[in-house]
């Protein structure tokens, strides 16, 4: 086993989680989208690295797909939404930034506690990294719950999806291309639909903040 392979894998998987935590830290919507792009690229690096090591061409294609959809297409779409209002910021999250980071740390600890039981089933260098994926899922979900800006919510959703993808790459050495294709295109579709919704939402109520939509219920 080459040390380069392991080193790259650990670095990329770590980058996925790190970028997830960074999205909690940054307030500017543009910065959050850049973090998402970084995460997409890191995820594709994980897939490509695994593919090169295991000589799996299908996984290589999956990696390329991830790069195109999650590293390029989705961030580009979100950036377009963000550019309509360049100063748009996640101004008042429900949980403030320092507290969020503490929470994120707690979630990461939790996922390691829980994840060791999963990795214990088939311990190896690769599966040992699986808790990173779980942590990304939890951080993404946390973002979904606590952030008010619509774009932040979409990003949270994609973080959850990326975390799941990371876990599947690490635990199963890559999912069939067709599954990943389905999941990625689903997420892309969700982003497109949400973009459409946001445009009409802004048109109607001149705000991106979901809290202010509360009066519409019933």
């Amino acid at each position: 086993m080459s040390t380069t392979y392991v080193g790259v894998l650990e670095l990329a998987a770590g980058a996925v989680l790190l970028s997830a935590v960074m999205t909690l830290w940054r307030r500017s919507v543009r910065a959050i989208v850049s973090m998402l792009r970084l995460q997409g690229v890191a995820l594709s690096v994980v897939a490509v690295d695994l593919a090169l090591h295991e000589h799996e061409h299908a996984l290589l294609a999956t990696g390329a797909l991830v790069l195109v959809v999650k590293g390029v297409a989705i961030p580009a779409l979100l950036r377009r939404i963000a550019q309509r209002d360049p100063r748009s910021r996640e101004s008042r999250p429900l949980v403030n930034v320092p507290a969020s980071l503490v929470f994120a740390a707690a979630l990461i600890v939790l996922s390691y506690v829980v994840g060791t039981r999963i990795t214990a089933l088939a311990p190896s260098v690769v599966t040992n990294l699986a808790p990173l994926g779980l942590a990304t899922v939890l951080v993404g979900y946390f973002m979904l719950v606590t952030r008010r800006h619509a774009v932040s919510k979409i990003v949270g959703l994609i973080l959850v999806d990326n975390g799941i993808a990371l876990m599947t790459f690490l635990l199963t050495s890559g999912v069939p291309l067709i599954v990943e294709l389905g999941a990625s295109l689903d997420v892309l579709l969700v982003v497109v639909v949400l973009q459409f919704l946001m445009v009409s939402m802004r048109h109607h109520s001149a705000t991106d903040r979901l809290t202010e939509m509360k009066a519409l219920h019933d």
């Binding site: 429900l94 939790l110 996922s111 829980v114 939890l138 979900y141 946390f142 979904l144 719950v145 606590t146 008010r148 979901l210 809290t211 939509m213 509360k214 519409l216 219920h217 019933d218």
Partner: peptide, 23 residues
């Protein structure tokens, strides 16, 4: 069910955490 999307999401998140800890 008070119409706050944050509350719905938080309930889901809480349930996920409880399942993770208990399971």
């Amino acid at each position: 069910q008070n119409g706050s999307i944050h509350r719905y999401l938080a309930l889901g998140f809480l349930a996920l955490l409880v399942v993770l800890v208990v399971a």
